[in-house]
Write a protein that binds this DNA or RNA. Structure first.
Length: 592
RNA sequence: GCGCCCGUAGCUCAGUUGGAUAGAGCACCGACCUUCUAAGUCGGUGGUCGCAGGUUCGAAUCCUGCCGGGCGCGCCA
């Protein structure tokens, strides 16, 4: 509907004499938006005000000329000039009826742009370290990323979802040692657990499966492990030195192959846990990308080669530095240490180069707000390697706080009472989880109230929207219980019977859906869709409740044509709610 | 100190990339059940859009400077 207006205005602009309007003004796409106030019609455009200055015209006079040049169209009832020079379009009822028909025809595809009409997008999200279970904060990333992927797909982009597994570096060695020590514990070997190890119970089943798989083959005596180790922190030593010493000892005793076997087992266990956690939440990925693979397949070599060739590196103190300051970073960054080991940053730029080389136009990394410092750096890396830095886009998600009925839930790994994503999902359910995590703008700190998320009242927006869907389903059940049927063809042919103001408002609300979808995708803002669905649900409830005030306004009335028309209206509304909830990853139940 | 984000009703937040008289939900006051699910609907009270300048036909929105809050500034990952 919006594009119809845009086309009409463009045609009008093209028809104006050149001395009245320059070529530039003709070429720009006219801005058209829904009106806030119904008295201003359905759509409004500010083109006249936009171009008044360049055209040396009074905005209202220019608007006059534009309106005069507008081609006739059956969807336009009348056009008015208002205020400082707005052009207001009042649509005909037929225009809405046509759109309502489109909703019924296209069903789940309503509002969706043709696949492949947009960009090739690589969307990376969650990418939590595989050293512990996902917690509540990761839940926001999962819900946001999954909803954004759906939004972008609906907007016609081709979206590839990726999880970057940090399976390289010291943390992985610590993970492996932690699992090994739990394994040895099971076999009765008494080795004190490093204070810097991963102490969580989630490693116990992984240690158990290691025992089941390897039996005693990876066993070494406690004495052999402990002999000659420096003191751990509780004994007055340094916990970092201690854990490094025990990693080295493990390598000596197990050999590189044995140690690698434990690393792989531990990582495999953790990644499997994370993957199933996300899958239960309805969040899946097209690829789980291994950081380690970047060093084994030469991707890092290639990235560093590009940096050096383009002259953006130098040697200092034996290390290889990237001139990040040339690309707006605060300081230069080391990419290869004196000992030849590449830094995490080197993997990062290699990973992003790899994404580009795989042919993606747009790289979107969903990151926590605490990673913002990293954005300029990676962009700089891309630029230095000859890739467009703007191809990388990074929505930064703010923190999540949990509340239980107004009381803030203390969270912190130190207190040992941090809430896992699994616990949260089991307590409030997947629907509330998915919904609440995307309810607020991503750059807004999120307060997640557990009690509210569980409540089955109108304060709870997820129930409010689902209830609107269920109510329509209930009407359809009533219909068949009364032995009646919905004649779809007659309904579609009788839409002109929908003359009540609340029916009109409902049609207006549901036909906004494609515009909201496009906006939400373009601004990477699923919460826009959430707010819209709440408004649409309100119109559904309102139209439904009109039947309580006055039985003549019910859907199921004796007049068959009117009944079928109203059934078409409510069916369409239900379809749009269902489509919107699907994007968010929330179910649309028929009964509640 | 530098960088990023935020500041809108008593509370939690929207605000269609600069539009017309700034909106929801909660809370508070009131109206509507012989009901297609009242798990709902409708109305009312409530604002110096942090402050001060600037840009222009027009600013909550863009720019500058302050004030307040959050986060980040490793040859860790």
């Amino acid at each position: 509907m919006k594009s119809t207006i845009e086309t009409l205005i463009s045609a009008a602009l093209a028809a104006l004499p050149p001395d009245l309007l320059g070529a530039e003004a003709r070429a720009t796409r006219p801005e058209v938006e829904r009106t806030r106030d119904a008295s201003h019609g359905d759509y409004a455009s500010n083109v006249a005000m936009r171009h008044a200055k360049a055209a040396r015209q009074n905005p209202r006079a220019l608007a006059e000329a534009i309106v005069h040049a507008l081609p006739a169209d059956p969807s336009i009832a009348r056009v008015e000039i208002a205020g400082p020079g707005f052009i207001n379009f009042h649509l005909t009822a037929a225009a809405y009826h046509g759109e309502l028909g489109a909703i019924i025809d296209r069903g789940a595809g309503y509002g969706v742009q043709p696949a492949g009409s947009g960009e090739k997008v690589l969307l990376e999200f969650v990418s939590a370290n595989p050293t512990g279970p996902l917690h509540v904060g990761h839940g926001r990333h999962a819900a946001y990323g999954a909803a954004l992927a759906n939004l972008l797909t609906a907007a016609g982009h081709s979206v590839h979802r990726e999880y970057y597994i940090n399976d390289a570096g010291r943390q992985v060695d610590i993970l492996a040692v932690s699992v090994w020590l739990r394994y040895l514990e099971r076999l009765g070997e008494d080795v004190p657990f490093p204070s810097n190890g991963y102490k969580g119970e989630y490693l116990l089943p992984i240690a158990a499966s290691l025992e089941a798989e390897a039996s005693h083959k990876l066993r070494h005596s406690a004495a052999a492990i402990r002999t000659g180790l420096p003191p751990d922190e509780p004994e007055g030593g340094d916990k970092e030195q201690y854990v490094d010493a025990i990693i080295n000892r493990s390598r000596e005793l197990l050999g590189e192959d044995g140690f690698r076997r434990i690393v792989d087992h531990a990582l495999g266990g953790m990644v499997a846990d994370i993957r199933s956690d996300l899958a239960e939440m309805g969040v899946t990925f097209d690829r789980w990308f291994s950081e380690r693979s970047l060093s084994t397949n030469g991707a890092i070599d290639e990235a560093l080669r590009r940096l050096e060739q383009s002259g953006h590196t130098y040697r200092k103190d034996g290390a290889l530095w990237f001139r990040a300051t040339e690309f707006g970073d605060d300081e230069d960054r080391v990419v290869e240490r004196e000992n030849g080991v590449r830094t995490y940053f080197a993997s990062d730029i290699a990973y992003h180069l790899d994404k580009r080389l795989r042919g993606f136009d747009r790289l979107i990394d969903v990151l926590g707000a605490d990673h913002h410092g990293y954005v300029a750096r990676v962009r700089g890396g891309l630029a230095a390697m000859g890739e467009p830095p703007d191809s990388l886009e990074v929505p930064l998600l703010q923190l999540v706080s949990l509340y239980r009925g107004g009381e803030k839930v203390a969270m912190g790994k130190r207190e040992g009472n941090f809430v896992t994503l699994r616990q949260l999902r089991h307590e409030v359910g997947n629907d509330a989880c998915r919904f609440y995590f995307v309810m607020r703008s991503h750059d807004q700190h999120l307060d997640f109230d557990l009690e509210l998320a569980k409540s089955r009242t109108t304060d709870n927006p997820v129930f409010y929207i689902q209830y609107a869907h269920a109510r329509v389903a209930s009407v359809l059940r009533q219909l068949s219980e009364r032995g009646l049927e919905h004649d779809v063809v007659r309904g579609r042919a009788s839409l002109e019977h929908l003359t009540e103001p609340h029916e009109r408002r409902l049609m207006v609300a549901m036909t906004r859906y494609p515009e909201v979808l496009a906006l939400a995708a373009a601004t990477r803002a699923p919460h826009t869709l959430v707010n819209y669905l709440r408004e649409l649900a309100n119109e559904v409830h309102s139209a439904y409740a009109a039947g309580n005030e006055n039985a003549a306004h019910r859907v199921i009335v004796d007049d068959e044509t009117l009944r079928d028309a109203r059934l078409a209206l409510f069916q369409a509304a239900r379809q749009v709610i269902r489509n919107g909830l699907a994007i968010l990853g929330v179910s649309a139940p028929d009964t509640m």
